[in-house]
Design a protein around this nucleic acid. Sequence first.
RNA 1: UCCUCGGUAGCUCAGUGGCAGAGCAAUCGGCUGUUAACCGAUCGGUCGUUGGUUCGAAUCCAACCCGGGGAGCCA
Length: 501
Amino acid sequence: MKRQLTYIHQLKNHISTDVDLAGWVYNVRSSGSLVFIECRDGSGICQCVVNKEEVSEESWEAAISLKQESSIRLNGFVVSDERSIGGVELQVKRLEVIQLVADYPITPKEHGIEFLMNRRHLWLRSQRQWAAMRVRNGIIYAIHNFFQSKGFIQTDTPIFTPNAAEGSTTLFETDFFNDKAYLAQTGQLYGEALAMAYGLIYTFGPTFRAEKSKTRRHLSEFWMIEPEMAFYDLEMNMDLAEDMLKSIVAEVLEKYHHELALLERDTSSLKRLVEKDFIRMKYDDAVDILNSDKTAKVLDELIQQRKAEKEELIQEQDAIQKEHGSAKKWRKKQIEKRVIDIHTRVDQIEEDLRNIPRWKKSAQEFTWGSDFGGSDETVLTMQFNVPVMVTHWPAQIKAFYMKRDETDTYALGVDILAPEGYGEIVGGSQREDNLDVILARIEEEGLDPEVFDWYIDLRRFGSVPHAGFGLGLERTVAWICGLSHVRETIAFPRMMGRITP
RNA sequence: UCCUCGGUAGCUCAGUGGCAGAGCAAUCGGCUGUUAACCGAUCGGUCGUUGGUUCGAAUCCAACCCGGGGAGCCA
């Protein structure tokens, strides 16, 4: 007979039967003649109870010797039990240790980010990281579903490129058989060629930026989805992007509520977005909002809120520290823990209090013709509870390939800003399709027409209106999971100062 | 490159000029329903580095190293 393994996520279907599990010890507790093992097998976690009276001496000795991340095989009887995580519990009949582990470094306690990032290969086993990677998988699947169901085909564009496509961004340089080559920062120009061949295409691949950015929104290596559609204008492009985001969020909400719950994600804003229309505004209107008295007032109120919160926390700290001297032991511990939480929150508030006046200044003094900074995006989106699509940008701050409106001052580009301060997740545009205009644009930008010769061919031979956009996968995962940093949205992040593990 | 915050036990953090601390982890013991279990005991230190001020420095000053957050740039 074939040996059958049961996976923890299916255990609900095996209640009142015997099963074999194989996995790792996530945590272990003991209480006299009972040992409680939280066993994880990659598909989930299940509490397994070993009772000294009901197992062999070997199994019992094995059980009491277990440490975190020891690998084990278990045989037992599945029962439903509300006291257990997942509502299902294994009453162990036999336990076999594959490897006994000593000193697993990541305990179920709190750790700092540097410590965890140095052990990313192990950190991925932890619940929150496990959940985030599963949601990432769900998002990827939903993206393919969306495009495939609409007749798009996935195409892949090169990673080695001979030149910097848009000029401004810093690229990673490599040696390509004694020639300089660069790691691609976008597949868009190739995507346009493919759209002229297949009509509706999307790319899904890694992309590389060598900018020395150290923020919660930046990685040196990240994944981007870039659809490109022949015969699409700006509005069709925006409709597609909005449908895509709604479709991704709806699918994740449907299939990943367990993971989102582990991540403690408040899903009300995600649910709202599936049903409501996104905000669409022109750049000029966005500038008016930034400059408005209302925005200034919103930020002033935010400062007052933070100050009040800080005051309250400090009062609470004074009060409980007075209590500390005469408190019972358990209460002392509780107080000490709370004081540390207060310190952490007060540090955050102090940073906010340093930053918000800068945000206000940046918004109030924002002048037409500049690009939005990170804080401007936050200030803008905090006034709405659905994604904001900003269109019609001053042409001079956007790339040469974007089509302009009749007045030649605005580029038909669109940026989609995620709610809750997650920033720009989509950037796209209708592309310039006129041969003479694109030639002139390339010259204006001081770019080498030789390099773009094949690209210009697309305007020589059957040029049509077309449009596309790029979706940043990690920023999307961060937003949907409610994670504060993109480094937790990819298994092995690459960023300035981080190339291992 | 610049601004800002930080570096104290294996981990998370208190300690702001006067004896180096707590919780967790580890080790030993106790406990038949634990949920980051709990209770008792034991173990645990180059206070990032170098120099300076001082009777005395984890604490003040300077330089440097490393990390977090941000600006620029961007998805």
